[in-house]
Design a protein around this nucleic acid. Structure first.
Ligand SMILES: [Mn+2]
Ligand SMILES: [Mn+2]
Ligand SMILES: [Zn+2]
Ligand SMILES: [Zn+2]
Lengths: 137, 137
DNA sequence: ATATTAAATAATAATGATTACTATTACTGA
DNA sequence: TCAGTAATAGTAATCATTATTATTTAATAT
């Protein structure tokens, strides 16, 4: 935990705005004027890998970062692009135009992630090989 | 509807793989060897604006395109990155590891989109101005 | 404390996806 | 046939991200 990484994490915890890497860079720069953008990118990546933060792909081309690593739901404005957290228990029909947070909800996006059958097969093969290798010695 | 746009749309309807712009370019090139990548990008954008196709931001940095403009749910493999459609009525608890399509589901992503209160306020102001302008003449 | 080693950084260059530009080509309607 | 318009191919530019490298920092052993 370098001081750069510490400050990046702290700044990300301060906001609920789901900033881009560039925005995080600007935030952190106020406290560490000599930090480089590459360092911000690398630490954001590392923190996301460790599950300390979350990397969001909800915008178009740029990633956004979330200091809250818990799985939760987001709401994005199609006009200005801002992203907010929304309290939502995904149980009943989430159709049509409900209002929450002052938003007029126009639709939703739901995406699962996981491992497909092909990759799971490959996993099994790898595991089998691992077993074989271990039993050899 | 130029022949380029027609072929792009046709090729997109042929597959269920949610290809990137680059992949669409390669597909279309087999039929129109002189088409340029810029034309593919522009037409994909236009088709998406018209609601004929859908532009998906589920990957990291690159966009994917879907010949099916209906709102439906996707499943992505965290290992190989493939994206498939999934038949899912978002009604009950979608927690934990359910299996569908041979996938091992590890989590999901749910995102609403809409208009925030600020932008709706701006809309109201614009509408009011429009009204005023019309009543003037 | 000092030398040694490894890890992380700042600065910069390179890459990859997307968008912008421009001259040329294809269409449309007198 | 002949403008006038819209779309295209080809290319350059931009923007986000990643890779590279020399330098700095931190940790460890002497
Ligand atoms: Mn969030
Ligand atoms: Mn689909
Ligand atoms: Zn807004
Ligand atoms: Zn897979």
């Amino acid at each position: 935990m370098t001081k750069q990484r510490k400050v990046i994490l702290e700044e990300l915890h301060k906001v609920t705005s789901h900033p881009t890497a560039d925005m995080v860079y600007e935030m952190v720069r106020k406290r560490l004027p000599h930090i480089s953008l590459g360092t911000v990118y690398r630490n954001l990546e590392d923190l996301a890998d460790q599950g300390e933060i979350r990397k969001l792909s909800i915008d178009g081309t740029r990633m956004r970062f979330d200091g809250n690593p818990e799985e939760h739901t987001h709401i994005r404005c199609i006009v200005c692009g801002r992203v907010d957290d929304i309290h939502f228990a995904p149980t009943v029909s989430m159709q049509d135009s409900i209002s929450d947070n002052g938003y007029k909800i126009l639709g939703h996006k739901l995406e699962f992630y996981g491992k497909c059958s092909e990759c799971r097969k490959k996993d099994e093969i790898m595991k089998a090989k691992e077993k074989k290798r271990k039993s050899k010695d």
